[in-house]
Computed example of a mutant assay.
Amino acid sequence: MKKISFISGALIVVMLLLFLTGVLDFNNEIKKSIASGNKLYASKDYDTSLEVYRKALEKNSEDAILNYNSGQASYQLNNYEQAIEHYDKASDKVDKYLHQGNCSYKLADSSNDMNQKMESYNKALEIYKNGMVNFPSNVELKYNYELVKSKIDEMNKDNQNQQDNENQQDNKENQQDDNKNNQDGKNDQQDNKDNQENEDNKQGQQQDQDNQNNESGSEDKNKNENGEDENKEEEQESEQSKNKEGNQDEDKKNQQEQGEKSDEDKEDGSSMNKEDTSEGEQNDKDIMQVLQMLEKQEESSLKNNQQVKNSGKEEKYDW
């Protein structure tokens, strides 16, 4: 039993020695890398020093000293984004917050994009603020914080002025658009008014034309009616003329018959040596009746002619 216990104890001791030897060698290698890199950094050979620090970080990526020194070398090479990543893993001290905040400040100054610039300034302001919380008595952190804050305020003011100018320009353009729209609306109203007036004029002209056509039709109709009236008058006058001629022929016939009768009476008188007084008187009465009849026919004929004359027609056919 004693022999077994001794062997076990010996193995444990050997293993501990090997472990301690390896750890010591590992730590010594990191220390050697840090020392070598610091010499290169001091000689301003920042690229070579950063390469030495990087090889050591491949063995222990969380080493605070290696990360801080790598951040310093990256800062000198203007590789600010990489420097910020290394500073995040460094131990808390004033230089860490100062240098990390300065990296964000440098990124903001070198950017032409306003949004990126504002973002970097805000990040630097946050880093300085955290540093003041951990080291409230440090003056440099406070000074850098105030400097970045003034930059941010100035940018906000410029942005506000720019926004106001853009708003004024937009309002001006909108006002111009409104004025243009109002002018277009007035022009449209005037065009509509002119079109309405033209339409009214066309309708008025069409109505006048229709009225003229109606008047012309009425005149034609009146002419036709007048022509018909004239034809009727001509027919009436022709009939009256025929009636008059008939009356005249009848009168001539009566006169002829009367003359023949007188001749017969004469012949009878010559043959009979005149009739007595009663027969002569009877003949006189017959003659008077004939004459009265002729006068009535003449008056009737004149009356008919007078009615035609007084009917308001033209005196073309007056007789």
Rank of each mutant, 00 (worst) to 15 (best):
Y87I: 01
V13L: 14
F26D: 05
N138D: 12
E81D: 11
D268I: 01
E245H: 10
Q162R: 15
K180Q: 15
N195C: 04
K202I: 11
L294M: 13
Y68L: 07
L125C: 00
D191R: 15
N211S: 13
Q76R: 15
Q175H: 15
K309D: 09
N305T: 05
V133W: 03
Q258K: 13
K202T: 06
G22L: 09
I84M: 09
Q203A: 13
K32P: 02
D286T: 04
L16E: 00
D265M: 09
N222H: 02
S49F: 06
I84D: 02
Q196A: 14
N159R: 12
D170I: 14
F26G: 07
Q169L: 15
D45R: 06
N198D: 09
D229P: 00
T48D: 09
Q297D: 09
L11I: 10
G217C: 01
S150I: 05
L107D: 01
G37L: 03
L40E: 09
K253F: 05
S36K: 14
D268Q: 11
Q168C: 06
K202V: 09
L107F: 03
K316Y: 04
E85Q: 06
D188W: 10
E257K: 08
F19Y: 11
N69H: 10
M15L: 15
K59Q: 14
S271H: 12
D63E: 07
N243H: 02
